[in-house]
Every structure is written in C-alpha cells, then in structure tokens.
Nucleic acid binder design. Sequence first.
DNA 1: AGCGTGACGGTTGAG
DNA 2: TGCTCAACCGTCACG
Length: 362
Amino acid sequence: MMEPAFGEVNQLGGVFVNGRPLPNAIRLRIVELAQLGIRPCDISRQLRVSHGCVSKILARYNETGSILPGAIGGSKPRVTTPTVVKHIRTYKQRDPGIFAWEIRDRLLADGVCDKYNVPSVSSISRILRNKIGSLSLGQQGHYDSSSGGNSSKHPASLHGAPPPQPALTYSPIYSYPSPMGAHPPPGATKVASPPGVPAALANSMIMATRTWPSSHSVTDILGIRHITEQVGDSPSAYTSAKIEEWGNLTRGTFQASTHPAVNGIEKTSLEQEAKYNQAPNGLPAVGSFVSASGIGSYHPTPQVAPYMAYGATPSNYVAGHGWQHAGSSTLSPHSCDIPTPLAFKGMQAAREGSHPVTASAL
DNA sequence: AGCGTGACGGTTGAG
DNA sequence: TGCTCAACCGTCACG
C-alpha cells in the first residue's frame, strides 16, 4: 500500500517520500558536508532537504554518531518478560507481603532489569494480581525465559541511552549483539559511544563517514554519480530508481567500509531498504531493475533518482567528482534547475583541500 | 538569515 | 489474517 511511488517535492524542489526516511546516501551526505564545515542552511539548499531535517539528522549524528534513521514501526519490547515475571513471583513467594515498589527495587538490585526496562510499579502490581495472585503463588508452569526473542528494534538505540548492559532478557532487544562490540570505533571521534548505541551501528556509520577520506569516499560509496544517467525520463525510472536506491546505498555504504557493519543493528534500516528493494509496488520493471543493478555490485550503482534533485543540482559539484554529469541532468520533474552554487564552492574547496574524491568512482 | 522545535500527515511493524 | 497503536519519518511554519 502506499508505495512510495513518486514521492513528493518539497519547497526546495527536493524529492521525498512522506513518511519514509531520506535515503542513507543523502543522510550521509548531510553529515559529510557538515563535517566539511558547510553550514546547515547551505546543506539544506544544496541537497534540497528541509533545514528541519538537516538539523535533525545532524543533531542525531552528533548525539549518537549514527546517520541512520530510527527504527520505524513495531512495538516496544515488553518489559514484563517471562523472566521478569518469574522473578517477581519468586520475590512474592519469599515475601508475600512485599510491595510492588520493593519488587521493583529488587529487580534492579538483582540485575534482572535495569532502569530502562524495569516494569513500573503499576505493572508489577498488575502482574501480581493477574499472573501471580491468581496462581496462588504456586509454582506453575515456568515461563520459558527465552521468550525474549522479541527481536524488535528498540527505540532506545537512537535516542534513549540504552541500558549499559541490559538484562539478559533484553539483550536481543536492547543490546544489539554486535560482533563488533569488541572493537570500539577506532576513529570514533565523536561518538561518545553512546551507551548502548548500537556500537556496530555507530561504528559502521562512523566508519562509513570517517573513512570517506579514502578514495572510496562517499561519492563513490553512494554512487551518486549515476544519478543522472540512470534516471530515465519515464516515471517508472524515477520510481525504480528510488526504490533501488534504498536497497543499494546502504549496503554499499556499509559494506564498503565495514564488513559486518550491518549485522543486526540497523536491521531496521537494512530491512527497510531491502523491502524497498523488493518493489513493493509490484512493478516488475522495478524489481528487475533493482536487483540487476543492486546485486553484488560493491559499489552499487546507485540510482538516487528521486533525489537527484540534489544530485543533479550542483552540476559543478557533480562534475567535480567525476560523476557522470550528464549535462542536462534532469530527470525529473523537479530536477533541478535551481542554482545552488555558492556553498558548493566552499565545499569543493574544502574537499579538494583534503582529498580528491574523484577517481574512485571511476 | 539561520536554526530549533512542534504540529502534521504519512509509513511501518510487533503484538 | 487483519487491526491497533506507538514508534519513526520529513516537511512546514513559527518564533
């Protein structure tokens, strides 16, 4: 339903899909530009992304070190897991007169829960009443403690500080078991490694961004250069491009810099993209298109079409980066005729100063 | 002019 | 299987 179809155009002429996050390519770009010293307002204009969004993405990046969007959809993990209930029951059995708030304290003290997932007093009361009280406190079916499988994403990763070390029960939820957990962000300059922030995620993104100085920089990673070429003129091209993009970009981004980067972590993001990738709208064309280009290409061929608005815009910029600047560029309705020169100069300068990004893309 | 913020209309996905 | 609902999204407009 409601497939992204064509997206909408914002006041700046940029294309976006209401309700959906901006492609990682653009998110990454925003951060990258910001790191180059470009002002948010200029970034906003150049990428044709609302300043509110730029602001938000940068703020989040500064806070979490991740450029990825938060987990969308789903439900919050339940705090009253079987394990918790089991403990509550135990407490109650040992001390029938125990108060809910005491149980709460004990759950914390015993490490069954941490402050982030400890049930509220009222929840505990409810448990006592519904699950335990009526059970006559007798041992009865033990809940299988592993239910935790609730593989959900949890919001905490992005904003809330996730529990330092979540109760086991939640490990799958709160602490993204990151294989990378071991090696903290090498270059994690800014990421204060937010507690619990999916280290992997942070890492990955960080790396993605931090590594960019390499020849494989963003441009490449993002494969933005294809923007112009891919964009057909037909609507379908437009669409497909968009969809495709979701599938590739990240993949490319992540893989490019950090291997396992992706695991689990931003499952959300990835999955989402995967989803997109699957041509939800059933456009055959899209599907094939996507997969075709998306498959395996390390540097995905990115078709950032819908957002070309941003890609196409600064032709100079584009050209400068070896993007296939198809002169005309323009593909979409709103492609961009909007001149956005200034900032780019600065940016370019900045870039050139540090590292030529050009070539890699080839 | 630039930026932070909240309302708004939208999508997503676990339960 | 379909629905609910709370999470997130980006844009827009206001201050």
